[in-house]
Design a protein around this nucleic acid. Structure first.
Lengths: 356, 356
DNA sequence: AGCCTCGGGTTTTACGTATAACTTGAAGCG
DNA sequence: CGCTTCAAGTTATACGTAAAACCCGAGGCT
């Protein structure tokens, strides 16, 4: 019927050689049992660390040494089949090319490794729209899910699964989440506000993200609260996608408007701050003498530009680590409390006293 | 014996609840068989796309509809156990926080998904030294391995496995590799040399990586060859780790030396170029009027700095895609030819005519 | 003595799938 | 007709592991 007969569509016969070249057949627990002169069940008991009071120290040692000399490794597919689990968790993030999430991922993988768990990534599509089924994409069954709030749309399909779900960088009270972990971004914004107010700034531009997720709503709210505590403060908001080019565009537009001329720009992300600095330079303004700029996240980019960005350092890897630890706790039947990780304002070259 | 009795060390009893909350028991092929009024074997035949000539269209459709209404998903652990494979490949890279590798990873995952394969990451330790066993770290058996040359040290343990191995960004003739895929970096360096020679530059500084892998050796060699073709050219080499700060330091040091004063700095990476630009500014030099600078890779950083970097754009995602495709080919028993992917010089704001 | 406990194992079974080997009824055919 | 061929299934088995259920001999207790 179909043309293209040369394409082998029979899955069962694919990769017949994949097993062949492997050095002999891998040793199984039965091989170990034979070598140690015990039954397969005993091997399973010993390897599973459940032998206390069930197997004598003599036999246990015999089994261990036989396993060692045969290079025995348990077949994980068989173990998973037996136990009905997968040792695999799904991490849902927008994109790893976003350095923040790459660092979160690093942390997640580190503690996953400690617990013998595998991490499979689901990169949620950039735009919105109905996301493809994360389960299918993972092509694996899962024990649990870690997800960023920036990928919340992709979570529809996960609801039905009833899987343990840990939200990173998200609303602590979020429904459906077994646990939440996030950097204390509200405190970060308060630190920014305090820093700039202390430098005498009163007219602000808030260069915000154009996406409406918890993390950015919190920033806006915390900033507004912190600034309103002081009288005589004005703040305008401009929204833009999180890229340098868009930050530049938005800043040029905002600074061109008459009336409100800010002395400081507070950005939701370092890439926006980099764009703002470029815009300022094009308009003949000197940063930080004429205009102060703050970033958020502390990406590598923050110290690559000149002058280096004053920014809020987010503990990205720690978020990943804490998130994975929380998921392990949930899998163990415990219920971890929501965590808010401390953040820290790093003052560098883009902030200075306001022009009088 | 050991203290800390409250820690449950019995792996078998961990996560007893993980299966419980899952919505009922998942449907198996036997459930589907019962619903469709056929045997389990028939279901397997139909789902495996091997039913042509073995099962009538009527029954096949009945099976498919039963599977659909039960929400049947094959248990992959069972399938793997039966077939003796894992549908999992290992990707070995230095770090995902390096944007280049994050993009390679994105490409790898994209085509892995098309083939129903999972990708597990092994992040090779930054420093050298004996790497931990990638197999253990993966906590999974593997069908194949994709590895970056920058993580070559971590590959010792893989040799013994006899697994298909595709090298990315590596020596085409590398022993032990089933296939190789890399961007044509030699051509990239030739383009850089041609561009700068055309602008009248004759005195160069090559700001190189301090790590000695194939990719950087090739750059040095290609650059030397291209520059030597023209007479009256001098080139000095300075080595530095791939960070902005180190690039800055190395440039300051090189420019402070007497005698040889370059008019152009050719960098092995964008981060070094960013550092070089910062150094130039501190020394009162104007880029590109007084000094031209070129980068390599075209990271996001390249357009974040001011002026934007002239750099060589590497097709990172394409490398990942081609690498994964090559690995699939090897798994299918074919032997793919080494691939060199085209690169392209992007001229932006950091290069100009040499001062006369 | 009779009964129970308990350490130290073994036997057996189930997990869900893929497929080799077998069955069966009908059609083809010289 | 008697033989093969063929479509369309079914039955049976194996993959490697974990663990429930069983077994057995030696003490301990009343």
């Amino acid at each position: 019927m179909t043309s293209g007969e040369e394409t082998p569509q029979r899955p069962g016969e694919r990769w017949p050689t994949a097993r062949g070249p492997r050095a002999g057949a891998r040793a199984t627990s039965r091989d170990v049992a034979r070598a140690a002169g015990v039954s397969q069940a005993t091997v399973s008991l010993v390897m599973g660390e459940k032998w206390r009071g069930r197997v004598s120290e003599r036999t246990a040692e015999a089994v261990r040494s036989a396993a060692r000399s045969l290079g025995y490794r348990p077949n994980l597919a068989a173990r998973d089949l037996r136990l009905g689990r997968t040792r695999t968790v799904l991490l849902v993030v927008p994109a790893l090319t976003n350095e923040f999430f790459a660092r979160v991922h690093t942390g997640v993988v580190r503690v996953a490794r400690e617990h013998g768990l595998g991490v499979v990534l689901y990169l949620s599509p950039e735009g919105t729209g109905p996301a493809p089924d994360p389960f299918a994409s993972a092509s694996a069954t899962l024990d649990g899910v870690l997800a960023s709030s920036m990928a919340a749309e992709a979570l529809g399909a996960l609801r039905g699964g009833g899987l343990p779900l840990v939200m990173l960088d998200s609303d602590p009270g979020r429904e459906g989440a077994s646990a939440t972990v996030n950097p204390d971004i509200a405190d970060g914004m308060r630190q920014v506000a305090g820093h700039l107010l202390g430098l005498g700034h009163r007219r602000f531009l808030h260069l915000a993200s154009d996406i409406d997720t918890w993390t950015f709503r919190v920033r806006a709210r915390a900033l507004a609260d912190a600034l309103c505590a002081t009288s005589g403060v004005t703040v305008r908001t401009e929204r833009a996608p999180l890229t340098v080019a868009d930050g530049l565009r938005a800043t040029e537009k905002a600074l061109a408007e008459p009336g409100h001329r800010p002395t400081a720009i507070i950005c939701d992300d370092d890439v926006l701050a980099a764009g703002a600095c470029k815009a300022a330079r094009r308009l003949g303004l000197h940063v930080p003498a004429d205009l102060s700029v703050t970033g958020f996240t502390d990406l590598a980019l923050a110290t690559a530009v000149e002058p280096e960005l004053t920014t809020v350092q987010l503990p990205a890897e720690a978020v990943g680590e804490a998130g994975m630890r929380a998921l392990v706790a949930v899998l163990d039947g415990r219920t971890p409390a929501p965590e808010a990780l401390p953040v820290r304002l790093v003052t560098r070259g883009t902030t200075a006293h306001a022009r009088t």
